[in-house]
């Protein structure tokens, strides 16, 4: 018997009830994700990919089923503990970036560090390092509205990395990017994964799927495919 998996879902369902209509978005999902895995989630639009990612990211709660994080049942955790998990264990890149318009991108990236209690000077410095890493070194003082969609996406990624998360979640991180920038992001995720970060990415992008060590496919709220392929060599992703 292997050690406790990092993430363990057992018969997780998510049901939305709107008036008389009961809509089952996730049906009996059971998966285990080990530490330092690189998982891609694919599936048609509306198949429940984002919902699954939100539940694993502790942003949403399942209707039934069990979710264990490092062996501990998440539903038993209190608000402060969940907040700390979202703050320090997880980093989340949303499908729509969710940046705060009245802050500069540096302050946006620094925000998770505010809730961690890191001093202003240190978090600004860290934010600038992260922005440089995603290729936005010249834009520290800009506000999100002054940047293109792809640049905002990269700010959102930098923010997700602010507290050096154990798990990085990303919902369609390359959806708004051109081929070249998309590739940079995929490379960055590969690097992070190589450094030991668990990565879970929802993506239609085939390159992401090729990069990931594991691809989970959803259809109508069910896992129809879950395949691992031994460290897919990213030959194709190298820029010519």
């Amino acid at each position: 018997m292997a050690a406790t998996p990092l993430i363990q879902l057992q018969d997780v369902t998510k049901v939305y009830v709107t008036g008389q209509i009961r809509y089952e978005v996730l049906k009996q999902i059971s998966i285990e994700i080990e530490s330092a895995e690189y998982v891609a989630i694919s599936g048609a639009s509306g198949s429940g990919k984002s919902t699954l990612l939100h539940i694993i990211g502790c942003l949403d709660t399942p209707t039934s089923g069990s979710y264990r994080l490092k062996g501990e049942e998440v539903s038993r955790k209190g608000d402060v503990e969940l907040a700390r998990i979202r703050n320090q264990t997880f980093g989340f890149v949303f499908q729509s970036f969710n940046l705060l318009g009245r802050y500069t991108i540096t302050d946006n990236v620094a925000l998770p560090m505010v809730y961690r209690g890191i001093a202003r000077r240190a978090r600004t410095e860290k934010a600038k390092t992260l922005l440089t890493r995603v290729g936005l070194s010249g834009f520290f003082g800009h506000r999100p509205s002054e940047l293109s969609g792809g640049m905002q996406q990269r700010v959102a990624i930098a923010r997700a990395l602010a507290n050096d998360p154990t798990v990085l979640f990303a919902d369609e991180p390359t959806g708004n990017l051109d081929t070249k920038t998309g590739l940079d992001i995929i490379r960055l995720f590969g690097e992070l994964n190589a450094e030991g970060t668990t990565v879970m990415v929802v993506s239609h992008d085939l390159r992401v799927a090729q990069h990931a060590g594991r691809v989970i496919t959803l259809e109508d709220g069910r896992i129809i495919d879950d395949r691992r392929h031994a460290a897919a060599e990213p030959a194709e992703t190298r820029t010519p």
């Binding site: 608000d79 989340f92 949303f94 969710n98 925000l111």
Partner: peptide, 16 residues
Amino acid sequence: TREIGLRKAIGAAQRD
């Protein structure tokens, strides 16, 4: 509301 959601998503507790 979206800002509150975001703050909670990146680590703000109810108390904060």
